[in-house]
Design a protein around this nucleic acid. Structure first.
Length: 305
DNA sequence: ATGACATTCTTGT
DNA sequence: ACAAGAATGTCAT
């Protein structure tokens, strides 16, 4: 199934993650518009004046509002989203190595991602059963990149993130269908209370701590898991090309297959598929919308600044 | 800039 | 089994 999510809609609201059904106010709408404008026009770097007039606001108000969301100025955001900057991300010297733990099939903390996660691969049986016997709870939450669909398995300390998808307000049904089609035999129930904590943990960098690593479970084919595992090793503020990844999994010619596997990553953002770029530094593609990929890269530039 | 095609893996018949 | 398609890359025009 294929969806076209081409509007950006980036949204943190006053530093808090909101639930999907909470009312949006003027700030929210404005920020969304600003990111959309900057993201769509990444090629010609609009000035603050242009941005402000597009929003119908004063320059100071625009500057302040935007900086509160992104952690960086509109100017810095535009730059973070250029081809040049993407190339710089690719240049980053130290190549992340595959976790030894993957070889062993065990879970282990990966400190390379700033959003400390422990990940484990689910038994191939579950994959073959297309999610049969799996109990998934989900909920939608507002996040800096639109509505986030959070999917969790297990309870309490065992709660583990299985899926993370994005959409614009109003497209929740599509996103849910998209995710359900990956594990059609799993059973699904909504549980906002459970997923809310997970969302807060993920989207507020203040909650990123090695003491409380986020548990994630990778469900996919062998090949896909190897690709996703490699993605997990790309640190914040850096990026890899699809061919880099193909080499990392010791299958250098499988470049195209890597692209397909990256695109099929069910835990978008946490498994940083947005840090996979074309060899030229071009963003090439994103399942949840290219503009959203730019927004993520820009937002991360603010986090790491 | 555009297009053909090489190559690998997934998925739907 | 088989064929089509995918978030690529390279080479030729």
């Amino acid at each position: 199934m294929k969806h076209d999510y081409h509007s950006p809609k980036a949204l943190r609201y006053g530093g808090h993650i909101l639930e999907a059904n909470e009312t949006l106010d003027g700030d929210y709408v404005t920020i969304r518009k600003a990111v959309e404008f900057l993201s769509l026009r990444w090629q010609d770097q609009p000035s603050l004046t242009e941005l402000a007039s597009h929003l119908g606001l004063g320059e100071t108000a625009t500057q302040k509002l935007f900086t509160r969301w992104a952690g960086i100025s509109p100017k810095a955001f535009s730059q973070a989203v250029t081809l040049d900057h993407a190339k710089r991300l690719l240049r980053d010297e130290d190549l992340p190595i595959l976790d030894a733990s993957f070889e062993l099939g065990l879970s282990s903390p990966s400190r390379l991602h700033d959003l400390f996660v422990t990940h484990e691969a689910m038994s191939p049986g579950i994959w073959k059963a297309r999610g049969g016997g799996l109990n998934l709870e989900y909920g939608f939450h507002q996040c800096p990149f639109g509505q986030a669909l959070v999917m969790v398995t297990g309870e309490g300390v065992n709660a583990s993130l299985v899926g993370l998808a994005f959409c614009d307000a109003g497209e929740e049904a599509l996103a849910l269908e998209d995710m359900k089609s990956r594990w059609p035999n799993a059973s699904y129930s909504e549980n906002i209370a459970l997923t809310r904590d997970m969302a807060k943990r993920i989207f507020d960098p203040q909650n990123w701590s090695p003491d409380t690593p986020l548990r994630v479970t990778l469900i996919g084919t062998d090949f896909q898991i190897r690709v996703w595992d490699t993605l997990l090793g790309i640190p914040l503020g850096s990026a890899k090309t699809y061919s880099d990844i193909a080499e990392a999994i010791e299958n250098p010619k499988a470049v195209r297959a890597v692209g397909a596997a990256v695109g099929r990553n069910p835990i978008s953002f946490v498994v940083p598929c947005h840090r996979a770029l074309g060899k030229s530094g071009a963003l090439t593609g994103y399942h949840w919308g290219l503009t959203r990929k730019r927004a993520m890269l820009g937002w991360e530039a603010g986090v790491s600044a």
